[in-house]
């Protein structure tokens, strides 16, 4: 398998930036398109290896089946939980208004 080095456009970077909630200026986009293309190109060297006989690796550690028992442990106090929040009302974290009840999907 061979892969030619990929070039990322400023449009690609803008999309990734949006997904990461980063406000990138035109200059940022130009600079990062170049830098990210180099990174992707570097990683794509892996594509030159023949991996036909290599099993996919789900995790770098050679460990499996790590569990804990279903036993309650101490939680933080509400004050501790909220202490680093930019804004809170003593009970809940406060954020700018969002639409909808929950993101749960």
């Amino acid at each position: 398998m061979s892969t030619s080095p990929q070039t990322l456009t400023t449009k690609d970077v803008a999309k990734v930036g949006l997904l990461a909630r980063l406000a990138l200026s035109e200059a940022d986009l130009e600079r990062m398109a170049g830098e990210l293309s180099k990174i992707v190109g570097f990683v794509s060297m892996l594509g030159e290896l023949d991996t036909a006989d290599v099993a996919p690796l789900a995790h770098p550690l050679d460990t499996q089946n790590v569990f804990r028992d279903d036993v309650p442990a101490a939680s933080l106090s509400t004050a501790e939980a909220l202490q680093s929040a930019p804004r809170h009302d003593g009970e809940c974290f406060l954020v700018p208004a969002v639409l909808g009840e929950s993101s749960a999907a």
Binding site: R68, P72, A74, S75, L76, A81, E91
Partner: peptide
């Protein structure tokens, strides 16, 4: 984590790092 899943607790009392 070991936080309780019990329903109806006061907000942010069943949370940990």
């Amino acid at each position: 984590c070991g936080c309780s899943t019990k329903f109806g607790g006061a907000p942010n009392t069943q949370v940990c790092p």
